[in-house]
Each structure stands twice: as structure tokens, then as C-alpha cells.
């Protein structure tokens, strides 16, 4: 593609972009421009999927995230139903988390409906917050019995939400509205995770930071660890991070902390389906 062609493409796209459509033609055009206007190595790394994701794919993705949200909502409902579990000192913040999650449910439901799909539903009694697939005796069976086990599962769900949403953001690229919603929700989840981690440290004295170090060595609980698999990556975009460009402060731990890793849909389903009656 010649430079003049690129300019033409660009002008055409500028004109066309006033008619906002749900699926952005701008991005398809943009691939061509980007491919052509990058006369250096990064250009070869463009791997945008050629075809728009189908509506069905988008609906499936949104319903998968909806399932996670409904499980987490039930988790908090039961936590609130347990006397003296939610610490009074942080009741405002926990209420914010619950309210935000309700909004996330509403947003996902609306997006599914707009795309012509049927939002995922499940009756409360088919959710097993112990992770026992309906047995009520799963790996998180002690979660409501004391604050320590409760807050660890809350951390698992919030860090996990960051990872599960992140795993879908680049799967919905052709739908700007969905990309925007998932990204903006996902950053709220990261703030929730920071709150949960702080609360755990504050209430419980656990030495823990706002971010995930390695595969989260602050807990050795096997069930919890399932949500942290793959978090210890030290390479991004094919570039090895520790000591990069002579910066010794980019240690192995820092390299893993500085990037939250996605969980793909297959792995995510395997994790969250444990909370659904089989």
C-alpha cells in the first residue's frame, strides 16, 4: 500500500466514522493503515483477527461473565446473611462492591439483550458457593465460618474477575460497546481486589500487597491457587522483563506483578463451573 493510499483510507474513514455503527468499520480499515504505516519490527506483530466475532460468540462470552457475576453475587448474599462476617469497619466498601457487581450484572444482561440473545440465568439454590458442584461440601466449605476463610475467597473472586474479564476483552474487539464495557468494568474489579487485599491485610495481618506477586504466594490453598495459575509470567510481547535495558529494579517478582494475566474462557469455565450444581 502506498502512502497516498493510506492517506485516502484515513480521510475516508474520518468521513465515514460520523455514522456510528455498532461494529466499527474503522478498525478494519485501521489494520490496513497500521500494517502499511509501520516500517519497523512492531508492524510484523499485528495479528488482528480477520473476521468480526459473531453475535453468538459475543453473547456466549457475555453470558459466561454473567455466570461469574451471579456466583459472586450469591457469595456476598450469603456472607451478608452470616452474622458478624462482614467487618463493620468496612461495611460501606463491601456495600459498594455489592452494588457495583449488581450494576455489572445489569450491564451484561443489557448487552446480551441488545445483541439479540437471552441473558444467562440460574436459580440461587443451584449456586454452590463452596465450589462443590452442588454438594455444598466443596473446597470453600469453610468460607463463611470465619473472616479469614471468607476474605481469601473474596480475594479469589475479585482477582479472578480481573483475569476472567481480561481474558475476553481481546475476544470482543469488533464490538466497541462491549470492549468499552468490559474494560471499564475490569478496572473497577481491580480496585475491588485492592480493597479486598487491603482489608485482608488490615483485619488479618496477612502480609499482602495490592497486586499479585508470582502465582500469589500468600495462600497455599489448592482451590485458591487454581485462580492464580499462569500469573508468574516474566515475558511480555516476546520481551523478557527482568533486568530489561539494565534496570535492576525490574526483578522477577516485579515483572510478574506489573502485568495481570488473562484467563481464557475454557480455563475460566472449568474454574467457575465448580460453583454450579452439576
Amino acid at each position: 500500500m502506498k502512502i497516498n493510499d493510506i492517506i485516502k483510507y484515513f480521510e475516508q474513514a474520518e468521513e465515514g466514522s460520523t455514522a456510528t455503527t455498532r461494529r466499527s468499520a474503522l478498525k478494519d480499515f485501521g489494520v490496513k493503515v497500521a500494517m502499511a504505516s509501520l516500517p519497523f519490527a512492531a508492524g510484523s506483530l499485528y495479528t488482528k483477527k480477520a473476521n468480526a466475532q459473531s453475535k453468538e460468540t459475543l453473547i456466549n462470552i457475555l453470558n459466561y461473565l454473567l455466570k461469574l457475576e451471579l456466583i459472586v453475587a450469591e457469595f456476598y448474599t450469603q456472607a451478608y446473611g452470616t452474622a458478624n462476617l462482614i467487618p463493620a469497619a468496612f461495611s460501606t466498601q463491601f456495600q459498594s462492591v455489592v452494588d457495583q457487581n449488581k450494576s455489572h450484572v445489569a450491564t451484561l444482561q443489557r448487552l446480551v439483550t441488545e445483541l439479540g440473545g437471552t441473558p444467562y440465568t440460574i436459580i440461587d439454590t443451584d449456586i454452590d458457593i463452596t465450589g462443590g458442584r452442588g454438594s455444598g461440601n466443596g473446597e470453600f466449605v469453610n468460607s463463611l465460618s470465619n473472616f479469614t476463610t471468607f476474605i481469601v475467597q473474596a480475594q479469589y473472586f475479585t482477582d479472578g474477575a480481573v483475569r476472567l474479564y481480561k481474558g475476553q476483552i481481546f475476544e470482543v474487539l469488533t464490538d466497541n460497546i462491549t470492549v468499552r464495557a468490559l474494560m471499564n468494568i475490569h478496572s473497577t474489579k481491580a480496585r475491588q481486589a485492592t480493597f479486598i487485599r487491603f482489608t485482608r491485610k488490615y483485619m488479618d495481618g496477612t502480609k499482602i500487597n495490592p497486586w499479585i506477586t508470582g502465582t500469589n504466594t500468600d495462600t497455599t490453598n489448592t482451590a485458591v491457587q487454581r485462580m492464580y495459575a499462569g500469573e508468574s509470567i516474566t515475558e511480555q510481547l516476546g520481551i523478557y522483563l527482568p533486568g530489561l535495558n539494565g534496570f535492576d529494579n525490574i526483578t522477577i517478582d516485579v515483572s510478574t506483578e506489573a502485568f495481570d494475566e488473562p484467563i481464557n474462557k475454557v480455563d475460566g469455565e472449568n474454574i467457575i463451573n465448580r460453583f454450579i450444581k452439576g
Binding site: L45, F170, T188, W211
Partner: peptide
């Protein structure tokens, strides 16, 4: 940027950094 970027690879890396930025902001 996630909405404005073209390459899924770039969206991915920005999402990976974005949530850590959000952790910083919240902390």
C-alpha cells in the same frame, strides 16, 4: 485505548497493564 487500538495483541498488553494501574490508583 482498548477500544481505540487495532491489534488484539496490543489490546491484551494494555489490559494487562491497565488493571495494575487501577490497583495503583486504588492503593
Amino acid at each position: 485505548a482498548a477500544r481505540l487500538l487495532i491489534s488484539d495483541k496490543h489490546v491484551e498488553i494494555v489490559a494487562k497493564m491497565g488493571s495494575v494501574n487501577a490497583r495503583h490508583a486504588a492503593a
